[in-house]
Amino acid sequence: MTSSAIASMTGFARQQGESDHFSWVWEVKSVNGRGLELRHRLPQGFEGLEPELRRRVKEQLHRGNVNVSLTLRRLAPQSSVTVDEALLQRLAGLCDRLCQDYDVAPPRADGLLGLRGVLEIQEEAEDEEFRQEIEGLLLKDFEFALSALEQSRQDEGRRMGELLHTHLERISQGIEKAESLEAVRPEAMRERLSRLVQELLNASAGQLPEDRLAQEAALLVSKADVREELDRMKAHLSSAQDLLAEGGPVGRRLDFLCQEFNREANTLCSKSPDADLTAIGLDLKTAIDQLRELVQNME
């Protein structure tokens, strides 16, 4: 995988092959997962391929639940046929007596050979050299299937990348709209602070010192100041764009940034002193949720 490629964790590949004695089909499928996990279904007698399959998957993929299936069919059985001559002679003699005693037609040769125990088909043992040859061919085609799976994940990743940029742009526009609102500007906050202090003075009627009232009013206004949240969201936005430019397996780090985005958006909504700012905060949360849904399927 190239360092600039964004990859999905979802993909599928199929690879067929055959030799003089076998035909086979590899199917490799992956879906999203927290880490990298391999599940396999191999024919009886080929379980020894599993460690090599696992090693090759780990070399090429970083995250995802990967399911590997091998279907194997023998084309030219390695077998030999033997005839139990003694049993065949006894059966032939018995048939002769039956034909004489009961005046019935003599049996055909294929009928005698079809009786249980007359013919024995024995599978020839496969030597180590033959086994290694077959396993080598199987692993070669598995490598093709794994590369096709990786390409499938990268193709899906490119489509995801376009959507990711769209959602990040929506977040960027939301931040710009929030910063442009009158309610978040310093002069508007100073005006709000002055008005709040005056209201507190009028309400307290001299019961509390003016400096204490001013401190309490300033605290209330600072709690409604969302500029810090907007600044942090801009920093997260820049980090997300850098990660997308970096490429490779950045899904975990982007998922963490989505959590941080969501935390700031929640705080912005809870602190918002303005209905328009609250509406922008809710739109940001929607864009962040859509972003995270994509990110959770990235490698």
Rank of each mutant, 00 (worst) to 15 (best):
L244V: 01
A145M: 00
Q154C: 13
Q151K: 06
L230H: 06
G161A: 15
A217V: 00
P77R: 03
F261T: 12
Q89V: 13
R56C: 13
P77S: 04
S238C: 08
R34T: 12
E47P: 00
G248M: 08
M9P: 02
E210Y: 06
P43S: 01
Q78P: 11
E229R: 00
I121L: 10
L137C: 13
R41D: 00
T267H: 12
L70G: 02
N202Y: 06
D242T: 13
G33M: 04
K58A: 12
A218E: 02
L268Q: 07
R190H: 08
E143K: 10
S19F: 14
R63T: 12
Q154S: 15
L164R: 00
S30H: 03
K58C: 12
R116I: 10
R131Q: 11
I121N: 11
D84E: 14
I175S: 08
M9L: 04
C95K: 08
L112A: 03
L149P: 07
R73I: 14
E37K: 09
L291M: 08
A265R: 06
E199R: 14
L163V: 13
A205V: 09
L61K: 02
D20W: 09
S79C: 05
G251V: 11
Q296W: 04
E52F: 02
L164C: 00
T278K: 05
D211L: 11
L137R: 09
E191M: 09
G111W: 13
A214F: 07
E179T: 05
D242E: 14
I171W: 06
R56Y: 08
L196G: 03
R190M: 03
E228V: 08
D20K: 13
E293W: 05
Q173C: 12
C99Y: 07
T10Q: 09
M160L: 12
P106K: 15
A240R: 00
G114A: 03
F256N: 06
A7I: 08
N202F: 07
S79W: 07
E126A: 07
E176C: 05
C99F: 06
F46M: 01
G93M: 11
L119H: 02
P209C: 08
L115P: 04
P107W: 00
S19P: 09
R14F: 06
L277D: 02
C269F: 06
R73S: 11
I6P: 02
D20S: 10
Q100A: 15
H165N: 12
S204Q: 01
Q16I: 09
W24T: 12
V184E: 01
L168D: 03
L98F: 13
T278D: 04
L53F: 06
E179Q: 09
E176W: 06
V83K: 03
P273W: 02
E124M: 13
G114D: 04
E229P: 02
S272F: 05
E135W: 01
C258L: 05
L237V: 12
E150N: 15
E126W: 10
I175D: 04
G206P: 01
V25R: 11
S194E: 14
P107A: 00
S3A: 10
F256I: 14
G17W: 09
L196R: 05
N297E: 03
R34V: 14
D289S: 10
S152A: 10
T2C: 13
G93E: 15
G45I: 00
R153Y: 03
E18H: 14
D225A: 03
A7S: 11
R252G: 14
Q173G: 14
A203T: 10
L193T: 08
S69K: 14
L61V: 04
K223H: 11
A287K: 08
H167D: 05
M160N: 01
L201Y: 07
M298I: 15
